[in-house]
């Protein structure tokens, strides 16, 4: 026990430190030189202080959004891989992101212009879409089963993904060219949220999910091996499965509505972390959350600086960095 505590402390310090440094360091990096003294100069009114606005409006919300989305997607990936007992599961496997994308596509194509408390119609519609997908998948996994069939969950999720993808294409087809371009742009992921409204809207749900995740590692360790064995060791399998499914799915929905469906984080970060820390979920889960945060923040810095003043969609960077890296991991593991 003490050994696991020590390892947890060491890895939390390592990965937590990495996430902390990246969130703190990212707002200092950019194509526009800013002076920190001027950023924090209280004698200048904020409305006139360009350096402060670049720091507090353009860069800091992005870094925080990147950290929240990265942590949520990476941790959700770990939970879903354990729940479905499938190493290829990602936060997007169960159709949540496709539902979310469909909501966003509908809002863009049909020009919904409502917004509340800094949250645009597209963000709200994408979250509603993810809730719809979660409801459908859960309903299917429960139907005709006393408990909660993870096989049905997986198959239903994959099928729903394809179905929603077809609907997304259909909605894109209906859109005129400027809207079609915006839908494509949304699918590539974007963290330039220009303020704290969208962040505050997603934060509560992500925090609740991360808290639920804190309760999950021990039962997930047993569950990822065998549900019967877990039940015989006193694990309330159905409850754990439900908590794992709802917390990871809702968090994914919140993260995707904030930053778009940013790929690869939910699969490469958990695997990379497992390579470094082993497979105990008590360490893998927090370490993945921290590393996911650091990874996405770093990718976003690259997205906004690599081709400046042109902004690169962050989803392209995560896929470009993540894809080859993951393949290298696969080959190396063999």
């Amino acid at each position: 026990m003490t050994s696991i505590r020590r390892r947890l402390a060491v890895w939390t310090l390592v990965f937590g430190g990495l996430a902390f440094i990246s969130v703190l360091g990212a707002p200092l990096i950019g194509t526009t030189p800013i002076r920190l003294a001027r950023v924090f100069d209280r004698s200048l009114p904020f409305a006139d202080n360009v350096d402060a606005q670049i720091f507090f409006i353009a860069r800091l919300p992005r870094a925080l959004a990147g950290a929240l989305v990265g942590a949520t997607l990476a941790a959700s990936g770990v939970v879903l891989q354990a729940l479905l007992r499938n190493p290829l599961a990602t936060p997007f496997t169960l159709g949540v992101s496709a539902g979310s994308a469909l909501g966003a596509m509908l809002a863009i194509t049909f020009r919904l212009h409502l917004s509340m408390a800094g949250v645009s119609a597209v963000t709200a519609a994408s979250f509603i879409g993810s809730l719809g997908a979660i409801g459908i998948v859960y309903g299917l996994a429960r139907a005709r089963h006393q408990g909660f069939s993870t096989n049905v969950l997986l198959l239903a999720g994959v099928t729903l993904n394809s179905f929603f993808s077809a609907l997304i294409l259909f909605v894109q087809y209906l859109a005129d060219s400027s809207e079609a371009l915006r839908t494509m742009r949304w699918l590539m992921g974007d963290l330039d949220i220009a303020g704290y409204g969208p962040l505050l809207a997603s934060l509560p749900l992500c925090l609740v999910a991360l808290l639920a995740f804190a309760w999950l590692p021990r039962p997930l360790n047993l569950l990822s091996l065998d549900t019967d064995a877990a039940a015989s060791r006193g694990v309330n399998v159905l409850l754990v499965q439900r908590v794992a499914f709802f917390s990871s799915s809702l968090a994914t929905g919140a993260a995707v509505s904030l930053g778009g469906p940013i790929g690869f984080i939910g699969i490469i970060v958990p695997h990379l972390v497992r390579l470094m820390v082993g497979s105990d979920h008590r360490i893998v889960l927090p370490a993945s959350a921290f590393f996911g945060a650091a990874f996405l923040v770093a990718c976003d810095v690259l997205a906004r600086t690599a081709m400046a003043p042109v902004e690169l969609p962050v989803g392209i960077i995560t896929a470009l960095v993540g894809g080859p890296f993951f393949l290298w991991l696969l080959v190396r593991q063999r």
Partner: peptide, 19 residues
Amino acid sequence: FADVKRESLLVSTETILAK
């Protein structure tokens, strides 16, 4: 953005503040 030889470009809020 006259110096960017493209018809259109995606820009960040930081770039707009800087420009």
